Simulated scan of single mutants.
Amino acid sequence: MKILLYFEGLSVIGKSGIGRALAHQKRALSSVGIQYTLDPSSEDYDILHVNTYGPNSARMVAKAKRLGKKIIYHAHSTEEDFRNSFVGSNKLAPIVKKWLVHLYSQADCLITPTPYSRELLKSYGLTQPIAAISNGIDLQRYYPNKEKEAAFREYFSLPEEQKVIISVGLFFERKGIIDFVEIARQMPEYTFIWFGDVPMYSIPRNIRKIVKHDHPKNVIFPGYIEGEVIEGGYSAADLFFFPSYEETEGIVVLEALASRQKVLLRDIPVYSGWMKDGCNCYMGRSNQEFITLIKQMTSEQLPDVTEAGFKTAQGKSIMEIGRELKSVYQDMLDEPV
């Protein structure tokens, strides 16, 4: 069995969750002994596994069909999570949905990260098999580490007693960045750090304004940072706060869980079945609820559910994802042509 993993525009979106998903796929396949290639010119493969949605991805699918190859489309994106992102995204969303449905309908099988996103795809009228497989998490990378935690505090010049709230994501309205800043404005005694980046020209003016200058002094936008600073931040912070309005999974949530960090989420449908309020995280629905929960969680007024959160992350380890992908691949190859 050999898989062609295809990813278009890695230099542009490689830092996004989809980019990390590709890295996880490569490790997952290696962990279960599946051979793969990233070479789009290769014809020596059994299954094309496509992660992206541009014109080159469409051409790869057409070529695979001519060669008689099996095709999996990894449905990372939906109309719902395209909205409230880039400039003009809401106007383009219906067109994007039609394009996604066109691409996805070419595949023999779809993979999507959660049961929630699987139901969205079914509501689009897609009828082929759809497997819900997490994007996975590299557990060991996010284990608490004193040296990484020290690097995080040193990078931001944070005294030990300073309470720190972190989030990770692109500068999209749907990620909850407006609420994040407004909550920080009402909690000046905390430092709020939002890791992530996106070209400023690509986002609406109100979001650019927030990121560039219209935020209180206790909010930091350090941009895209990888390595020990952000990995240390996941465990060194007092809370991971992710107020996103729409996700197909949220790899950053898994990263926080693997770090044994306290996690505060917006109560949205994507978490149904794997994240539960008061069991492995806490959830809120409004800014006032979030403010109350932040105070309670950082002052130990609520039960600590981080160990249950860690166990949730364990169930989505790279090796587990490898086994699930292998099962889908094998089922496809066993199907008669």
Results as ranks from 00 to 15, higher is better:
Ile203Arg: 00
Gly176Ile: 04
Glu173Thr: 02
Gln261Arg: 13
Met187Tyr: 12
Tyr190Gly: 06
Glu226Ala: 11
Gln162Asn: 07
Val164Arg: 02
Glu182Arg: 12
Ile165Asp: 05
Trp194Val: 03
Glu161Gln: 15
Ser202Leu: 15
Ile203Pro: 00
Tyr234Val: 04
Arg185Met: 08
His213Arg: 11
Gly250Phe: 04
Met187Pro: 09
Glu249Val: 03
Phe221Arg: 03
His213Gly: 04
Glu249Gln: 13
Gly233Val: 00
Asn206Leu: 02
Gly227Phe: 12
Ile165Val: 15
Pro243Gly: 07
Val164Cys: 01
Lys163Gly: 02
Ile225Thr: 04
Val211Pro: 01
Ile251His: 03
Val164Gly: 00
Arg260His: 15
Gly233Ile: 02
Trp194Ser: 07
Pro188Phe: 14
Phe195Pro: 00
Asp238Glu: 04
Glu189Asp: 14
Val229Phe: 03
Leu170Thr: 14
Arg174Phe: 10
Lys163Arg: 09
Val164Gln: 02
Asn206Ala: 09
Gly232Ile: 09
Arg260Trp: 13
Ser244Tyr: 03
Gly176Asp: 01
Ile178Arg: 10
Leu254Met: 14
Met200Ile: 14
Lys209Gln: 14
Val211Cys: 02
Gly196Asp: 08
Tyr201Leu: 12
Val168Tyr: 09
Leu254Trp: 05
Val181Tyr: 06
Ala258Cys: 08
Val253Ile: 14
